[in-house]
Simulated scan of single mutants.
Amino acid sequence: MKRVAFIYPGQGSQTVGMGQDLYQEYDRIKQLFETANERLGYDLTSIMFNGPKEQLTKTENTQPALLLVSAAITQLLAEENIKPVVTGGHSLGEYSSLVTADAISFSDAVLLVHERGKLMERAYPEGKGSMAAVLGMDKDTLESELVKISQDLNEVIEIANLNCPGQIVISGAKPAIDKAVETLKTAGAKRVLPLPVSGPFHSSLMKVAANDFEQLVENIKWSDAAIPVYANVLAEKVIEADLIKELLVKQLYSPVRFEEIIEQLLEESLDAIVEIGSGKVLTGLVKKVNKRATTFAVQDQDSLDEFIKWFKEEE
């Protein structure tokens, strides 16, 4: 049996229409969508399939939508007896991985990430925080430049995501991010791209949401993970329920250490690393770390069929 890891995308991978072909093809997937609608108390399915895009990209809708598509594909693969030996995700994607590892039920997870999205939106005044992707600058140089910007403006600006070699996301107060967009190219960055987000996610400015989020996490039933899950905060595998809960709270305001997670997955003696859900962002990050890595991005019926065929081929 082939050994595969499942990795799950985070915010930014959503598209209007995602999951619609699977919804139309499988009654049991339609039921999963209806479970999400009932748990949330509104028609998430309609927003996912019909938009408008602005409604889908609201954090409180994006997060359950991405988790739903990832869970649907994972369920279809499980029915083919295709399960990962290890799993992980990028930011929100960590919740999808915890559902796969049976640490939390799908029904509880879809409500939790919806509430997480609302807390993240409320944690900092809309339009006052921002994020940007910095390309072609090493971590140490970038950190040094961010310290200067922070001191000059007396504003928070920090590393938020360590995605892959040459791609780091920064987060903080909008004036500081705007300054970084202006000055980091002079300091050696190839490009600095503002991101279309509503807040300074994965920065210390999110700590104000931590207490409320911790209460939500504590009110949900958790189990030890059935398979190891890579945690964003540590870039290490975790199983224990209490540690998982603690790290999910810290994840709100801590950097996502995804490059380190990829590096460790590449040491796992896997036959493939499989991105499950909308988009191909994480597959691209894996290839930046090792272009020869065997990867699949399973996001619709065609890619599902292709991956199942590969998995079931004789080695």
Rank of each mutant, 00 (worst) to 15 (best):
7 I>A: 00
19 G>I: 06
20 Q>T: 03
23 Y>V: 00
25 E>V: 07
29 I>D: 01
30 K>N: 11
36 A>D: 07
36 A>Y: 08
38 E>D: 14
38 E>W: 09
39 R>Y: 05
40 L>Y: 13
42 Y>W: 14
43 D>F: 07
46 S>R: 15
47 I>W: 05
47 I>T: 15
49 F>A: 08
50 N>A: 15
55 Q>V: 06
58 K>R: 14
60 E>L: 06
62 T>G: 08
64 P>Q: 10
67 L>P: 00
71 A>L: 04
71 A>Y: 09
74 T>I: 09
75 Q>R: 15
76 L>R: 05
76 L>A: 08
79 E>H: 02
79 E>F: 04
83 K>N: 13
88 G>Q: 05
89 G>F: 05
89 G>P: 15
90 H>C: 09
91 S>V: 10
93 G>S: 09
96 S>N: 13
97 S>I: 10
97 S>D: 06
98 L>A: 03
102 D>K: 15
104 I>C: 14
107 S>H: 06
107 S>I: 02
108 D>R: 14
110 V>K: 03
112 L>T: 05
112 L>P: 13
115 E>M: 10
116 R>L: 03
119 L>V: 11
123 A>T: 00
124 Y>D: 14
125 P>Y: 05
127 G>K: 04
131 M>Q: 13
132 A>G: 07
139 K>V: 15
140 D>G: 04
144 S>Q: 13
144 S>G: 12
149 I>N: 05
149 I>H: 09
150 S>W: 12
159 I>A: 07
160 A>S: 13
167 Q>L: 02
168 I>N: 03
169 V>P: 12
171 S>R: 02
175 P>H: 00
175 P>L: 00
179 K>W: 03
179 K>L: 01
180 A>F: 01
192 V>R: 04
200 P>T: 02
201 F>P: 10
202 H>W: 04
203 S>I: 09
204 S>P: 09
205 L>C: 00
211 N>T: 11
217 V>D: 15
220 I>N: 07
227 I>C: 05
232 N>G: 02
233 V>N: 02
234 L>H: 04
234 L>A: 12
235 A>G: 03
238 V>A: 03
243 L>N: 11
244 I>Y: 13
244 I>C: 09
249 V>G: 01
250 K>V: 01
251 Q>E: 10
254 S>P: 05
258 F>L: 04
261 I>C: 11
266 L>N: 08
267 E>Q: 15
269 S>A: 06
270 L>F: 07
271 D>I: 02
277 G>H: 00
278 S>I: 00
279 G>R: 01
283 T>L: 13
283 T>G: 14
284 G>C: 05
285 L>C: 01
286 V>L: 01
287 K>S: 03
291 K>G: 06
292 R>S: 13
294 T>I: 09
295 T>I: 00
295 T>N: 02
296 F>K: 07
298 V>N: 07
298 V>L: 11
298 V>D: 08
300 D>K: 01
301 Q>A: 04
302 D>A: 09
304 L>S: 05
305 D>T: 08
308 I>G: 12
312 K>H: 15
314 E>V: 08
314 E>K: 10
315 E>I: 13
315 E>C: 07
315 E>Q: 11
